[in-house]
Amino acid sequence: MRKILPISAAILVSSLTLLPLTGCSKSETAQKDNKASAAATKDQKSTDPLEVLSYAQGYQLGAQLPAEINTKQLALGIEEGKAHKDSIYTQDEIKAAFESYQKTVAQKAQEAVKKNEQFLADNAKKPEIKTAPSGLQYQILKEGTGKAPTANSTVKVNYEGKLVDGTVFDSTYSRNEPVELALGSTIPGWIEGIPKIKEGGSIMLYVPAKLGYGEHPVGNIPANSVLIFKVELLQVK
């Protein structure tokens, strides 16, 4: 039997050391797909503790995997590894595949960085956009007249977050439900930007990657992404 392949799952799984807002939800299309999938698998639910825990383990792993991972191949690897079968790939084949994949990832990352930097450079030229020393860009749509938040405040907000290509990655509007969150637990761009308005106010935030999720991909947010938020501050607690 060949030796266990020395490739850690960590090299394929996105880092979890993040600063989420409330956990990035999936797009509306993905949400519809999830509802359809949930309806289709509802009858597969089991009350057997081991089956419940097995599903939970798989669900947790799946939630951490990059979108490009082939889950059929992943499942095959798990099944054959569990059965202690010989791997169908040699260590050299896996090493070569990993190096090729890393080159592709690096190239895409460089392209994304250039695209996002160009967006910020162009956006900064607009007269309505202000740029803070940190690099945060913002536009106050409505100042508000109520209580002003601090980094230690709990705030109730409606917001929409999207990428520079217009892809919406999260929206309380689509869920018809504002959220409450501890401002200090959010990304740096929010901690700095939200206190620029008061209750009843609204703001556009253009968050550079260093004030967002940085080099970490999060859900359907690629690494090094500029994040664009429209935020309505409903209440400060």
Results as ranks from 00 to 15, higher is better:
17 T>H: 11
20 P>W: 12
23 G>W: 10
23 G>N: 01
24 C>P: 10
24 C>K: 11
24 C>M: 14
25 S>H: 13
26 K>E: 10
29 T>E: 15
31 Q>E: 15
32 K>I: 10
36 A>W: 11
36 A>N: 12
39 A>T: 11
39 A>S: 10
40 A>Q: 14
41 T>S: 10
42 K>G: 15
46 S>T: 09
47 T>E: 00
48 D>S: 02
54 S>N: 09
60 Q>P: 00
60 Q>R: 06
61 L>A: 10
62 G>C: 11
63 A>Q: 14
67 A>Y: 12
69 I>C: 06
70 N>S: 06
71 T>C: 05
71 T>V: 14
75 A>Y: 14
76 L>T: 09
78 I>C: 05
78 I>W: 07
80 E>K: 14
82 K>D: 06
83 A>C: 06
83 A>G: 02
86 D>I: 04
86 D>A: 13
88 I>S: 09
90 T>P: 07
90 T>A: 01
90 T>H: 00
92 D>N: 01
92 D>Q: 12
93 E>A: 03
93 E>N: 01
93 E>H: 03
94 I>P: 00
95 K>T: 05
97 A>K: 06
98 F>I: 13
98 F>S: 03
99 E>N: 04
104 T>I: 15
105 V>R: 04
106 A>C: 01
107 Q>A: 10
112 A>F: 01
114 K>L: 13
115 K>N: 07
115 K>D: 06
119 F>I: 07
121 A>T: 14
122 D>N: 11
122 D>H: 09
123 N>H: 09
123 N>A: 08
124 A>G: 01
125 K>C: 03
128 E>D: 12
128 E>N: 08
130 K>P: 02
133 P>H: 05
136 L>A: 05
